[in-house]
Nucleic acid binder design. Structure first.
Lengths: 239, 239
DNA sequence: GAGTGGTCTAGACCACGCA
DNA sequence: GCGTGGTCTAGACCACTCT
């Protein structure tokens, strides 16, 4: 289970150090890191070793490297987060970036299911956000988001919430989302959602259950999205 | 559109050479490549350059590297292909590997939609395969596969077809599937599928339209899968 | 012990962005 | 022209596998 390598490459240690610097906010999103030469000097390793660590981080989209300019902490802009983690497309195949609207926010105790999926304690409280997403101004996706109060203490006071929460997580709470796990199901529309989405009873609906995973591997957000695939489909490439 | 770099790194040329060797069957699946030293000597470059090319290929899962043993052409075993490209899981979240059963095979002219998606000529013929997939012995997925006759000339004579066609594509036709693009929709079950899957009329169904992409980037197979998410869900991780 | 891939170093030169 | 990342080399040593 817990694999102890017994041998820890130098570049891994450099990697860990650099990730910690970013995670603790020493270098902020969009800021440049010191040059490879400078880092190598500071850490007492060769430039090639720093380079290898940075290459791994670039592959994980944690930093961005630009030849001639430098290495920059990756920034979760609105557009970037939406493009990376939201797999919606028009039936024609063209990618679609939904906007968000309104939203209700409330605090409540966590359910046992949420405790299990987010690794919360029994008495942990969560914040639940409900909102609609629009395509071309038309309500298309019903979205319910659940996050622990402990990690995002005042997020319910930040209404109106931005289109992509992930850039807010990064800028306001120092939490970087690096991956999402999604489960996709087909189900029949419920009465309340039918009204919101302007669908007839008995319509099929795509339901997506998402868990968002932060840089340190912890699960920090649950999200359920419901959408009619009359207007929008879910498109993904597996390599 | 066509990006001409004007500068072609050496390791890229080595990469192209090595990929060509594999694509043309000089080194067969599961075979070992020459060692880095030998390749470097043959090609007149340094070991580090060969290493960089091989690292890229390993990241693309084109080869497998094993310390102390060598570098091997990645093999599409049944299990591997199913685990990599089939995203089915039980509602509990545990991955599910469906088996396949029976199947009808027929040749017919390609539709204009197929011509567009597979980049076929107007008069191109295709082979259509229809079959069921089972979970725990129960019919669960209806699968329709379309491939061009040109690429798989005698595949309709190879019944019964294996559980994963991708290992057959590799071993019998030298075609390596390296990625799949999938579009997911929710729809209502059709009468014929309801019978096959033992569902009632009006049940929601998950429909997945897949395009399989070969090593050279060409699109070589279309596949439509229909499944009730009462028994199986579609699970994917986005990084 | 021999052979393989994996790590680490030091140094040279190239391509790129910018002032 | 300078500083950045990107490529390439040559060589040393380490970790792993098999004989």
């Amino acid at each position: 289970m817990d694999e102890t390598p017994g041998f820890r490459p130098l570049y891994r240690q450099v990697y860990d150090y650099l990730v910690r610097q970013i995670a603790t906010g020493v270098w902020r999103p969009a800021e440049a890191l010191p040059s490879e030469q400078d880092l190598a000097g500071e850490l007492g390793v060769s430039q090639g070793t720093v380079r290898k660590a940075l290459d791994v981080m670039a592959a994980e989209q944690l930093v961005e490297r630009r030849q001639g300019k430098g290495t920059f902490v990756a920034e979760q802009t609105q557009e970037r987060a939406l493009f990376r983690f939201f797999r919606w497309a028009y039936p024609s195949g063209q990618r679609a970036i939904p906007t968000s609207m309104g939203g209700t926010v409330r605090r409540r105790p966590s359910s046992s299911d949420e405790q299990r999926k987010l690794h919360l304690r029994e008495n942990a409280k969560v914040i639940e956000i409900g909102r609609m997403r629009l395509i071309d101004g038309k309500p298309t996706i019903v979205e319910t988001i659940v996050v622990p109060v402990m990690l995002f203490p005042d997020i319910d006071k930040r209404v109106p919430l931005p289109n992509s929460l992930y850039s807010l997580y990064q800028s306001a709470y120092g939490i970087n989302i690096v991956a999402v796990e999604e489960e996709v199901r087909a189900e029949l529309v419920r009465k309340d959602d039918a009204k919101k989405l302007n669908l007839t009873v008995g319509s099929p609906l795509l339901r997506i259950d998402r868990v968002a995973i932060a840089l340190d591997g912890s699960r920090v957000e649950l999200r359920v999205s419901r959408c009619s695939t009359r207007d929008l489909i879910y498109a993904v490439t597996i390599r």
